[in-house]
Amino acid sequence: MAEGQHKLAIFRGLLKFKSNQQKIWGVLIFLSIVTTIEVGLGILKPEVLMTSFLRMKLLNWIFILLTIVKAYYIAWDFMHIRDERSGLKNSIVLPLVILIPYLIFILILEADYIFDVMDIGFVSWNF
């Protein structure tokens, strides 16, 4: 791939880089900032974010969201998905985007059900 074939803009064209190397360092800085925010939140654990939202702490939702953001930039800019044809892009991303949420949905729902059974059941698990 020649230099001209790299797409050098990130954040939907908000930030444009002059060369591919510059883009790499830019993405590194962005990923480092996100990781620092994650670690900072994990250490501080602000009281505001400890409220429950959809049966999980708000803080945990933020962690998961930031993780997906990081994963997006690793795949798009380090693994050059941004530069691939849309056919290849879709055949990589779509199976994962469809299968993973499905697996999460069925297993977490089942786990929640088992928790209820063990919690309100007549069998003691703690003896």
Binding site: L96, L107, I108, A111
Partner: peptide, 23 residues
């Protein structure tokens, strides 16, 4: 892609066990 699904299996089953013993 296939390896990503393997890791998904691991991590989701971790989530399963965790939600099963959430307290």
């Amino acid at each position: 892609v296939s390896d990503a699904l393997t890791f998904t299996g691991f991590l989701v089953s971790y989530g399963f066990s965790r939600f099963k013993n959430i307290n």
